[in-house]
Nucleic acid binder design. Structure first.
Length: 308
DNA sequence: GCATGTCAAGTTGTG
DNA sequence: CACAACTTGACATGC
């Protein structure tokens, strides 16, 4: 069965996530910082549960959790632990509720740390910060039962092989909670599926195949070949494949193919994905509306196949 | 109230 | 060399 995933936010449903900035926190005395962070974190975890319930009502099978669910948690100055927050106990209880709900309803959960997490960087400070952030996301993933923390390979620095070697050295030393969740995704400027597949196969890191990035940044592999080989990086470790799908904002002949459209053009849905066992995250600005539309389109495509 | 500029962090490619 | 694009709002500030 194909299952479809929503990324982080909703368009029409009343689910909201709050955040704050270091700039706003730093002038406050510590106890007021913690009060503010506590209120935001509590709000966010309660809305995460609401998000999961909404997703379940819509028949959506996966949800990507916003990285700053607990904003600034790993920041050197403003950082904190849940135990330090006045509502820490309630927050932990709510996390458990999210985990139970996702398990009962089989909603697959994932994280996607943003571009600042770069394990291949030649700069040790960047790598150290990245590891901190991954540890935070792994603790969160553990608490809610998420099986995927997906990142990009990072910069190429003019030499992808050396960059991937640096990545491998860091990967080997990561805590188990990070290592067994970490996945790599082909990106739209540097690393193609062809660059990453041998590395992923060798390191036993699952490859999240982003077909939109592959179309923006192609290699010698067809979509069918990339899908199949990426699939093996998941099934060989007993896991369900994960892919990403989006459509270009202004069509494929515009100069802005990398930016995401509101909805998925049904022609962008790869035929070879029909009937597969995998999760597909829908990266589209119309959020849950776009996921629901893809599910309807795929239903129609399946119907047409059955009739033929 | 409402409009507007800002927000921790990295890297690449464009103008 | 500066800035936008990745993702995207929500927040903080100032009128």
């Amino acid at each position: 069965m194909l299952r479809f995933g929503l990324c982080c936010l909703f368009k029409d449903h009343a689910v909201s996530f709050r955040t704050t900035t270091v700039k706003a926190l730093v002038p406050l005395p510590r106890n007021e910082q913690l009060l503010k962070l506590s209120a935001i974190s509590l709000h966010n975890v309660q809305n995460l549960l609401l998000a999961l319930k909404t997703v379940q009502c819509l028949g959506i099978g996966a949800f990507r959790i916003m990285s700053p669910l607990f904003p600034r948690m790993t920041h050197p100055e403003a950082g904190y632990s849940l135990e330090q927050l006045p509502d820490g106990k309630t927050i932990n209880a709510s996390l458990k509720e999210c985990k139970d709900f996702a398990f009962v309803h089989q909603i697959r959960l994932s994280f996607h740390p943003d571009q600042f997490v770069v394990l291949s960087s030649p700069n040790p400070r960047v790598v150290a910060n990245s590891i901190m952030e991954l540890q935070y996301q792994a603790a969160l993933a553990e608490a809610v039962g998420a099986d995927v923390i997906n990142i990009h390979a990072g910069g190429a620095y003019g030499d992808k092989t050396s960059a991937l070697n640096r990545f491998a050295a860091v990967f080997a030393e990561l805590p188990e909670a990070v290592r067994n969740r970490l996945t790599l995704e082909n990106d739209d400027v540097s690393y193609t599926p062809e660059d990453l597949l041998p590395f992923c196969e060798q390191q036993r890191i699952p490859l999240v195949y982003d077909v939109h990035h592959h179309r923006c940044n192609p290699d010698s592999l067809s979509i069918e070949e990339a899908t199949e080989r990426a699939c093996l990086t998941w099934t060989s470790v007993g896991r369900e494949q994960y892919c990403h799908l989006s459509s270009p904002r202004n069509g494929w002949d515009s100069g802005t193919i990398k930016s995401h459209a509101d909805f998925i053009d049904r022609n962008d849905f790869p035929d070879c994905w029909l009937g597969r066992n995998m999760t597909v995250d829908i990266e589209a600005k119309a959020k849950e509306l776009a996921v629901v539309k893809v599910m309807e389109d795929v239903e129609a495509l399946n119907y047409r196949l059955r009739v033929q």
